[in-house]
């Protein structure tokens, strides 16, 4: 069965990345990277820290421009932030990147308020609804500094959802979290995937979490995707780079 099929209707976008390269000074971060993500699919990019995963997401967002190659979303080149575009992207930053001077509720409702999508009463209702999705409806009036790391990530997810996105990007959603919190976040991602069927791209170095949430996944190594497949195919891959990454992770997990 082809991936991306049999999932029913989706409003997610398709992403096509062709020959993408990006260097900072002499350091080549991405080299001729090619990737296709189907509408409604959850694609996980795994790889060690510092291999260019965040740089890839920032280019999909239009925060960074590629040195070479193209990123097409539903066939159209990525527009810079602030430019009108036919789709919306929600981003969950690694640090959460919540606005520390705003309450949790104000963080989640900021996009709605600044773009005057609805009046205050409606915004309030949407904020409560999105926070309820991540199990934090009662934390609306707290400030980000009063939350745990896992809660902050969940608020960041709620903030991304408040824009009603067609594509949601997760940058290391479980980094720096304990196993229980990692579980919560992974569950939240899977839950949202089932509920909204939007396209998701998750970058992570957490193989277990990646396998759990992914429809397909790709291993990023030295700026290229060296292997793409279902979680099962990745686990069984004979590619030495993938094997090395998996074995390291398993050793870590086994405590050996």
């Amino acid at each position: 069965m082809q991936e991306g099929q049999g999932r029913g209707p989706t409003r997610g976008v398709a992403i096509r990345i062709v020959g993408l390269s990006k260097a900072f000074g002499d350091v080549e971060v991405l080299r001729d990277l090619t990737l296709e993500v189907q509408p409604g699919e959850t694609f996980v990019i795994i790889g060690p820290s510092g291999c260019g995963k965040t740089v890839l997401l920032k280019q999909i967002l239009g925060l960074l421009t590629p040195d070479a190659g193209r990123i097409l979303i539903d066939g159209a080149p990525v527009a810079a932030p602030g430019q009108p575009k036919p789709y919306r992207i929600g981003m969950v930053f690694q640090s959460g990147a919540l606005f520390s001077s705003l309450t949790v509720g104000e963080n989640v409702g900021l996009w709605l308020k600044e773009h005057r999508v609805a009046d205050d009463g409606v915004i309030e209702r949407i904020v409560t609804e999105k926070l309820a999705l991540v199990g934090l409806a009662d934390k609306k009036h707290l400030f980000p500094s009063e939350l745990s790391g896992g809660m902050r990530k969940r608020v960041a997810i709620a903030r991304a959802l408040a824009t009603d996105p067609d594509l949601i990007l997760y940058d290391e959603p479980t980094a720096e979290l304990d196993p229980v919190m990692t579980d919560h976040i992974a569950e939240a991602i899977v839950d949202l995937k089932r509920r909204f069927r939007i396209t998701s791209v998750v970058v992570t170095h957490d193989l277990n979490m990646g396998c759990y949430v992914a429809d397909r996944m790709g291993m990023l190594h030295e700026g290229r995707l060296v292997e793409v497949g279902t979680p099962e195919q990745i686990r069984r891959s004979a590619n030495p780079v993938v094997r090395a990454f998996i074995t390291t992770q398993t050793k870590g997990m086994g405590g050996a």
Partner: peptide
């Protein structure tokens, strides 16, 4: 200090991804 911290902790990028112009905001 406030804006520098926002830059360092990706809050400015977060504003941009919400299509909120940091200059205006």
């Amino acid at each position: 200090a406030e804006i520098a911290a926002m830059s360092v902790y990706e809050e400015i990028d977060a504003l941009r991804t919400l299509d909120i112009d940091p200059v205006r905001y």
